[in-house]
Structure formats: C-alpha cells, structure tokens
Design a protein around this nucleic acid. Structure first.
Lengths: 253, 253
DNA sequence: ACAGCGATTTAATATATGTAAGGGTTTCGC
DNA sequence: GCGAAACCCTTACATATATTAAATCGCTGT
C-alpha cells in the first residue's frame, strides 16, 4: 500500500517523475486527485467491459489490473498490465464505447476521476499535462513492443521479455526489493498475455528456472541473473523512454 | 493520387470527417497544411529509423508506408500500416528518440509538417484538434486489435482479419472500387505484419482463394465474399470506432 | 486437520507453422 | 524488348507449440 507522504497518488507521482521534473506545486496539485472517489474492485472481476461507455478516468492506486480483449469463442488476449500509478483510460473514454475490457488481477483500489477534474488540473499545471501525455505515449510504445514480442519472439524469449518489463516497471515505483518482487500473475495470465498456451507457459517457466535465470513461486518473482535474462529476451529498454533522465537498468541500483 | 478540390490533404479530411463533422473553416485550415514541404521517399526505403530524433510530423499524402520494429538478429515485425491521410507520428516525436522505424512500401509522398504549424492549427480550430485526437486514439485501438490478432487468432484468421481491415480503411478514403482495391503489399510484408512465415503466408492466401473468399494478384485485392471473410476473421468493427456516424460495413455501399 | 478447488506439473499425442531449397514467373531497369 | 532481379509458388521435411487428460500440489476456509 502507498503509505508515503503523497498518500494515495504517491505511485503516480513516482511514475510521472520518471518523465518530467515536477515542482512542489505540481505535486500538490496531483495530490488533489485524492478528492476523487476511491473504489474497490474484487480480484478477478471486471472493472470495465468492452462496449461500456465509461464516464470516469481510473487511476490504479493499489493492486494489479489488465486490459484485455476477447474473441466470440472465448480466446482471450491481455494487451497490457496496470500497476499502481497507472491510468487505465486516460483518453480512451473519449471514444465512447470501450473497445476492450479492464479486469482486476488482484483486489484493486482505484480513484474514479471525473474528466473535468483532470482537465482543470492539466490546464493549471502544464508540466503535469506534459507528464501525462508522456505517460500515455510510453503506454503506446509498450503496446508496440508487445506486438514485436508476440509476433517475432519465441515462447521462451517472450516470457523472459515480459518478466523483465514487469520487473523494471515495478522497480520504478519502488515495488521491488533488491532483485525480487511481489508477482500476483498466475500461469494462465501469463498465457493470455504472451499468446501461448498455459501448459506451454509452464514448460517455459521451468526452462527459465532450469537455466538459473529466475525463481517464481508463491506469488514472488526473483531475478537470479538479470543480465542474462535481458540478453535472452533481447530486451532493449529504449521503448520505455526512461533514458533522458540518465537512468541505467541494473537490478541492484 | 488525390485530385479532389482539397488537393494534397483531401484524404486527411476524408479520414477526419469519419470522426467529427468539420466546418468549411476547419477544412480550409487543414488545407493550409499543404504549405508544408512535400517530400518524396523511395519505395522500400526507410523514412525514419529507430533511434532518430525527428523534428517534423509526417502526413502521408500518397503511397503506403509502415511502422516496424526489428530484433538484433533480423526478425522484423510490422506494427501498423499507413495509407494516404494517415499521420506517421502525430505525437511520437515528443518522446525524442524513435522506438521504431517507418518504412515506405511503395513510393511515398508526405508532408513534413513543423510541430508549430500543427499547434497553431489546433489552437485555432478546436474541432480539428478533437478529430486529430480521435484519429490518434483509433490508431491505438487498432494496435490493440493487432495484439489480439497476432496473439489469439490462427494464421488463416489473422490473414483474413488484416485483409478486411485494410480494405475497410481504404474504402473509407475512397480508394476501393466496388469490392476490389490496389494492394501493394508483397507476401513477405504480410508475413512481417502477421507474425507468420512467408511460406505459410503463401499457403494461407491459397486457402483463402480456394475457399472463394478473395482474389489477390498483380497488386490487386478483390474481396469475393466479404460477409464470410469477416466471419472467418471474427472481424468486429467496433475497434475502428466508426459507428457513431451510423455507418455500416458492407463491401458494396 | 481436512475437504475442496484452483493452480501447477507431467505425459502422450496431434498439428500448425517453420525451414530449406529449387523452379517458375512477373516486374522493372536499361 | 531484353535481361536480371525480385517475387511467387511448391515440395519435403523438421519442430515448436497446442491439445487433452490426469496426477499432484498447495491454498482457503471450516
């Protein structure tokens, strides 16, 4: 849970400060978002369904969620994960009917922010607007990398890539302890996200363990050899667009 | 070639009017974009390379282009196609370093628009700004559908889906004649876009032909049974977000 | 402590898709 | 109009991943 001084929007601030340096006033303005209603969602339930016409923007405050699409015959593809500090639909609501669903992985707490509240925030604080735009563009970039991942990498490489990405993102909001982190995805989530079958996800994870690259049990992921895992995944951090801050990717910084 | 009254930005206007009803002043303002330099790109050449730091926004005026990413070992994934009236990077340039490349499929003509020119346009014409935002969000939605396509559909379904999508988009800018259209993609383009192998693309196309669903030769695509092709692809037009105009998807309207 | 259920693991088998290589055809530059 | 590429197509074979099913593990709640 976010128990820092910024309270419930602390992870968002951490998130945005990767992109833009915020002033004290910017941070205070963001903190004002906590006036929005805080909503609880049950684990494994839907938060928004394809076809809905949402009227709020959701900011994940606690827990994991995902964006997914499904086919009439039940096949399902997760197209992105949300962790605390991520917006589910900063702009998407503008399109009226949702073209995808949002589901909770764990129990989730989110702020249901009225669009006008965001508008007045971004009008008053241009740097915040800039940071939000950046955050959104990085999301699109991640989406493109996922296409490369699913379209061009082997099952093993895909898995490795997804684990590295999630670990890097979690670390960025201070949710990693050394080289390990809480990891609530079950194997069928990984299957839906990578486009491989749950049985094959299992084989793939075993291979990553056998190779001494990871440990994964009891909802806890531990990266044993970050460097080698990144090489296997052909992980190129460019697409996260963090470099302009001079940060480096190293599991132990 | 766009030889209508709006000249070189005619396809853009057609494109945007699917989303928002533009006034005469809006259209005139958009027509002003043709003051930007018109650039030629050679077929099969790169227009922007991953890592570049572009300073203009590109609007495709003639020809086809694609967004793609590649891996160190040469594997390549096309993550989107651009046809006339599409922006290549309406916002992406903000992120500084490109996380993907843009390549020409055919000879391409594009307007190289300075960001300030776009900014003054959108400040003066809010409906244009709204339409551009919509266009961008639809692009992201298409990206999500592609993830579903590559992650969850079989090779045959994937192929069918891609063909339907491209046909629908071409028709929307008046580039289809009845149930057929110019189609400059070669089989290895289709392979890179669907994440299947060129040989298998060939098998897949033959099957679509054998089933009496399409004709495809000499850079010309003809949809023989639109209804059945859509069903095979599980094509749900929601993701193109055209419905608010009350349009229907029918190959012969 | 145990029941019950979801999650993981294993195994056997099936199949879609990949790989490699050769021949045929269209396209395009000159 | 000719020649050389570039593209398309085919075949034979290899393999990664899917499918199905069933056995174990490990929570969660009683």
């Amino acid at each position: 849970m976010p128990d820092d001084s910024q309270g419930v929007v602390g992870d968002l601030i951490l998130n945005l400060e990767r992109y833009v340096r915020l002033s004290g006033d910017d941070r205070r303005a963001l903190t004002g978002l906590k006036a929005a209603p805080l909503v609880d969602a049950r684990a494994r339930g839907d938060i928004v369904r394809e076809g809905d016409n949402p009227t709020v923007v959701r900011l994940v405050v606690e827990g994991w969620a995902c964006r997914y699409k499904d086919l009439p015959d039940g096949r399902r593809q997760i197209v992105g994960f949300f962790i605390p500090g991520d917006f589910c639909d900063l702009n998407v609501y503008i399109l009226q009917a949702m073209d995808h669903s949002i589901g909770a992985i764990t129990p989730v707490k989110y702020l249901a922010i009225p669009p006008e509240m965001l508008e007045s925030l971004t009008e008053a604080r241009p740097r915040v607007a800039q940071a939000l735009l950046w955050h959104e563009l990085v999301n699109n970039s991640i989406q493109r990398e996922w296409l490369l991942n699913i379209g061009a990498r082997s099952a093993l490489e895909r898995m490795a890539h997804l684990l590295v990405e999630l670990f890097v993102r979690l670390r960025a909001i201070g949710k990693a302890e050394g080289n390990s982190c809480h990891f609530p995805l079950i194997q069928s989530d990984l299957a839906d996200a990578t486009g491989i079958t749950p049985v094959h996800v299992n084989r793939t994870l075993q291979e990553l363990r056998r190779e001494g690259l990871i440990e994964l049990r009891a909802k806890r992921l531990k990266i044993l050899d970050f460097e080698r895992l990144m090489r296997l995944a052909m992980f190129n951090p460019n697409y996260l667009h963090l470099d302009h801050e001079g940060r480096h990717l190293d599991a132990n910084d």
